Simulated assay, not measured.
Amino acid sequence: MAGPAKRVLVVDDGTTIRLFHRTILERAGFEVEEAINGVEGIERALTGRFDLVLVDINMPQMDGYTMLNRMRARPELRDIPAVTISTEAAPLDEELALAAGANLYIVKPADPEALVAAARLMTGRAA
């Protein structure tokens, strides 16, 4: 018996990318909300109950590294799994994201099957 749908917050300044991730995850049975930058991402994370946050790195107002650091500093957000999805592909970028609090690093464009697998893994949701 399946429980309630897992909730994912997609934080990315790109409208097309947010829609792409939303479509993939909703087809896989997740509920998805969106935020356009790290500031809005923190605000949404504080007002909603999310099982996973997908975070872009390069965003205006607050980048993904800063958002992750702030999430990890707040007790109510500390334990939400976070996956960074970025165009930055250098090993240092992944190291910085993991050091900031990401649980997983994916390079854009995210393969739809890999994205769903990562979301299921991070939320403990069966296939």
Score class of each variant (00 low, 15 high):
K6C: 13
E26T: 13
L92S: 14
V32D: 08
L104R: 15
R7F: 06
D56R: 03
I17L: 10
L52T: 04
G14H: 11
T15C: 02
N58S: 13
M122Y: 05
R74Y: 00
E34P: 03
A99L: 08
A100Y: 07
P75R: 10
E31S: 09
Y65G: 04
Y105F: 11
L19A: 15
V39Y: 00
A102T: 08
T15N: 12
V116W: 06
G64D: 05
G38C: 04
D79E: 08
K108S: 10
D111T: 08
I80K: 03
T66W: 03
N69T: 13
I17M: 14
R78H: 13
R7G: 05
L98R: 11
G48A: 00
A90F: 15
D12G: 11
A82F: 02
D56Y: 04
E95T: 14
T15D: 13
T23Y: 04
E95R: 15
H21Q: 11
M59S: 07
I80L: 06
L115P: 03
P91D: 15
D56L: 06
A5V: 04
A28E: 05
A126S: 12
Y105E: 07
R18K: 13
L98N: 03
V32C: 13
A118H: 04
T84Y: 00
R125P: 00
A117K: 14
P109M: 11
L68I: 07
R18M: 12
M59Y: 03
L104T: 12
E31G: 04
L52W: 02
S86I: 10
N37S: 03
R22L: 08
I42D: 00
K108C: 14
G48H: 06
V107S: 10
A99W: 06
M122V: 06
G64I: 02
T84A: 10
R72I: 09
E95S: 11
T66M: 12
V39M: 03
P91Q: 13
G38P: 01
A89T: 13
V53W: 01
H21G: 03
G41K: 00
E88S: 15
T87P: 09
L25H: 07
M59P: 06
M71G: 05
M62H: 05
A126F: 08
E43P: 00
E94T: 11
D111F: 10
S86V: 09
D93C: 13
L25M: 05
A100S: 15
L115S: 09
A119S: 08
R18G: 09
G124V: 09
K108Y: 08
A35K: 00
I80F: 02
G29I: 02
R49F: 01
D63F: 04
E26H: 03
A100G: 10
R78L: 06
E95A: 15
L52E: 02
